[in-house]
Design a protein around this nucleic acid. Structure first.
Lengths: 229, 229
DNA sequence: CCTCGCGGTCTGGTATACCAGTATGGTATT
DNA sequence: AATACCATACTGGTATACCAGACCGCGAGG
């Protein structure tokens, strides 16, 4: 998100490896071990790790680093915080956004074609939420949502695996945009919450029940995961 | 906040220098220039700067580093985002907090003695808001507020300069705690918003009008600062 | 056979030397 | 006197060598 070409910087490459699950959640990383793979020396690798740490994608583990584990309890907390941030975005955006901005947002929501790839759907969905936050014209809120979406990225791909869920997301995004266009803040907030909660509940359910399957693929999933509210 | 003794780590020392305005906002920093003052080599200094960058206390300026300037527009945005976060904290904390936790919070609010030092009042106030956020039992929300308060720290000291404002803050904190104890979420949210908005408006007014005075002390203040909402 | 201890090999942390790009100031030339 | 150019002294970026502490395994002794 910072670099146009993810291959450009060490940080971008490591980030892509983590978000793409090429580096398994919970896996330990060593600065020297990454040297040959990244073709760089420890100094820039350390810088990249520190930056990824501040993004929540990597953690310090006593002596050593580890790819941020996927923890259902943590995801539930992030999702809860996200509700706060995004409903705030809706309330702030409505009086501030120009009609043409809202129309563009609606176009963006509709542009998520269910025939597209999961990656495309994920990207469009991310853009929709970020664009909505952008309309709130508050840089802090925008940055907060950006961080949230980054940290949820590795699990969000699950929700766009089936064409049905992609279509459902598209429909819910459109409903949010439509309520905003109608100037109905309450309806927009309701539609948003329905979207976020439904998405999160399905996600938590899928992650929790398929824990063994993921573990077999080298992706441990921590936390209790009784995540519905 | 990270280290018990701010003098312990390079990061803590630099942080204290910035928050204490020993390093003027907007001042350029060079890694090598900090070496003699901090008695360390570039590597750990760079690490500290990168960490401070992620906290928003330091910025990159092309080639080079900059102590984060004080910008009224930015402060207004942070304050707006803070309203979102803290009202969310109130709504989440109320059903989750035990009565004894709320009593402790009320004690904390009342413990801000107007005869104390400004530093003590500032510290108590910080603790009050953080403790309130803690009761929401959401680590993301807590971390967000922690970052917000850090970034507002350099200007928040203004609001505790006079004994009247210290007393006002104490009273408003007590009112928030009382509403929480009464289980009245709406009243608590109203009291909180009144507190935050009043504080911010007085702050923006003071900062805006005394811009020249601060400039004479080497503290430039950017932004338009028509900050009331 | 079990246990205690020591040594090798990891880890990140630090200091430092070198690189390349840039901004600046002084000087020489017109 | 003004301007253009070049030398120099910065900047952060990188690679690397060395340090101290921790962990693990192996071997010796009980």
């Amino acid at each position: 998100m910072t670099d146009l070409d993810p291959e450009a910087s060490l940080h971008g490459r490591l980030r892509a490896s983590i978000l793409g699950l090429d580096l398994a959640p919970g896996q330990r990383l060593s600065e020297r071990g990454l040297e040959p793979e990244l073709g760089a020396s420890r100094t820039p690798i350390r810088a990249a790790l520190m930056r990824l740490e501040s993004e929540g994608l990597v953690r310090r583990d006593g002596r050593g680093w580890l790819v941020a584990p996927i923890d259902l309890d943590e995801i539930a907390q992030i999702a809860e915080f996200r509700e706060l941030v995004e409903t705030g975005a809706v309330r702030l955006a409505l009086p501030r956004a120009r009609r043409e901005d809202l129309l563009a947002l609606a176009d963006l929501a509709d542009s998520a074609d269910e025939t597209g790839t999961p990656e495309h759907s994920l990207h469009t969905g991310t853009s929709f939420h970020l664009e909505l936050a952008h309309l709130a014209e508050n840089a802090e809120l925008f940055a907060a949502l950006q961080g949230i979406l980054t940290r949820l990225f590795r699990t969000r791909w699950l929700e766009v695996q089936s064409t049905e869920s992609r279509e459902r997301v598209r429909r819910e995004h459109s409903a949010i945009a439509a309520a905003l266009l109608a100037g109905d803040a309450d309806a927009a907030e309701r539609a948003l919450l329905e979207h976020l909660r439904g998405t999160h509940d399905r996600l938590a359910l899928a992650l929790g029940s398929r824990r063994r399957e993921f573990a077999a693929r080298g992706i441990p999933i921590d936390g209790a995961g009784l995540a519905s509210r």
